[in-house]
Nucleic acid binder design. Structure first.
Lengths: 185, 185
DNA sequence: AGATCTACTTACTTACTAGTAAGTATTATA
DNA sequence: TATAATACTTACTAGTAAGTAAGTAGATCT
C-alpha cells in the first residue's frame, strides 16, 4: 500500500472518530495531505469505499490485539481491552462503533455490513474471554458470558462518549467499576 | 408556542436521533411541513438555535418524568427509566446524549452547554435514586451511587446504539442484565 | 525505445448547505 | 380604521459536498 493511501485511512479514521462520519469531507483530508480532492477519489472512488477501508483497518488492528493478549490471563485481557478505550478517551475521540451506530441510517450498506463483522469479532472474542474466566474461576459475574461481554462493551463505549460531555473523571470511574465488578469477591 | 414551531422541534428531534445532527438539514424539515426553508429560519434563525430548543424540549420531558415517577419505589424508578430507552430502541432511534456526544466537536458551544445541563439533571436524579435505594435496602450494588448511576446510563445508552447494529436482542439482554444486577441477591 | 501503469493535477459539474433581504397575507391591537 | 406584529413566501447568495473526465509527470515493463 502506498504511503498516501495509508495516510488517507489514518486521517479518515481520526476525523470519523473525532467529528463523525457526516462531518468530514474529502477536502478535509486533501488539505491535510497537501493534495487535491481528486487524489483521494483516485484511491477511494467513493466515501463509502473509504469508510469500508477504515473499518477493515480496525478489524486488522483488533485481530492483532487478540493475538497479542492471547497469552495473558482473563482479567488481564479485559484490562488490556479497556485500556484501548482509555487511549481513545485521552485523545478526545470516541470508538468507531459508537460514531457509526449513531450515523447508521445515513451510511452505505457496505459500511453497515463491515461494521457488523467488526462488532461480531470483538463480541465473540470478549465472550470467549468471559467463558474462560468463568470456567477457570478467574472472573466473577452474574448472567451468561455473552450478555456480560455486551455489557462491558456498551459501558466502556458510552463512557468514552460521556467523557466528551462530562470530562475524564466520569470515564475513569466507569472503567474502574467494570473492573471491580469482575474481580473475585 | 405555534403548532409549526412545535412541529419543527419534534421533527428535528426525530431527525437528530435517527440520522445525527450533521445529517439533517432545514430542507428536510421544510419538506415534511410543506413550508419553505426560510420559514424554519424565521422560528430558529440558526441551526444551533434549533439544536438548543431540542435539548430544552428534552429537559422539559425529563423533568416531567422525574415528577411522574416520584411516588414509585427505587427499583420501579430504574425500570421506568430503562423503559424510556426501550421505546427509543423500538423506534430505531438512539438517545440524544449519544448522538450529540459523537458529534461533540462539530456542535455549537450553546448546544454543548445545554447538553451538559441535561446530562447533569439525569445524572443527579439517578444518583439520588441509587442513594435512596442503598439506604432503604431496595437496591443492591457495589461502588458509590454516582458511579453506579453513570454505569447504568452509559450501558443503556450504548445498548440502544448497539441495537442498530446487532438488533433488538442485544438491547434486551443488556437491559435485563442491568436490572438483575440491582436486585437483592 | 515505446508502451503501459501509477499517482496524481486541473478543471469542472451537480446538488445541497446554512443563511438572508425584501415582500405579503392574515391577525391582533390602539 | 390605521398600525403593527405574526407567520410566512419568493428569490437569492456564498460556500461546500461528492464525484468525474481528461490530461500529465515519472517510474516500470517489454
Amino acid at each position: 500500500m502506498t504511503s498516501t493511501k495509508e495516510s488517507i485511512i489514518n486521517i479518515a479514521d481520526d476525523l470519523i472518530r473525532r467529528r463523525g462520519y457526516n462531518a468530514f469531507s474529502y477536502n478535509d483530508i486533501s488539505k491535510m495531505l497537501f493534495v487535491k480532492n481528486a487524489a483521494i477519489h483516485y484511491h477511494f472512488p467513493s466515501k463509502s469505499d473509504l469508510g469500508v477501508a477504515v473499518i477493515e483497518f480496525h478489524i486488522q488492528k483488533v485481530e492483532h490485539f487478540i493475538k497479542r493478549v492471547a497469552p495473558l490471563s482473563e482479567p488481564e485481557k479485559v484490562e488490556e481491552f479497556l485500556n484501548i478505550y482509555d487511549q481513545i478517551q485521552t485523545n478526545k475521540k470516541v470508538c468507531l462503533v459508537g460514531t457509526l451506530a449513531t450515523d447508521w441510517d445515513t451510511i452505505d450498506e457496505k459500511i453497515q455490513q463491515k461494521l457488523t463483522v467488526f462488532v461480531t469479532i470483538v463480541g465473540d472474542w470478549l465472550t470467549s474471554v468471559m467463558e474462560e474466566g468463568l470456567k477457570k474461576g478467574t472472573l466473577t459475574f452474574k448472567g451468561d458470558p455473552r450478555t456480560r461481554a455486551m455489557l462491558i462493551i456498551t459501558s466502556i463505549m458510552a463512557a468514552a462518549q460521556m467523557a466528551k460531555i462530562m470530562g475524564s473523571e466520569s470515564f475513569k470511574s466507569v472503567k474502574n467499576a467494570i473492573l471491580n465488578e469482575l474481580n473475585r469477591r
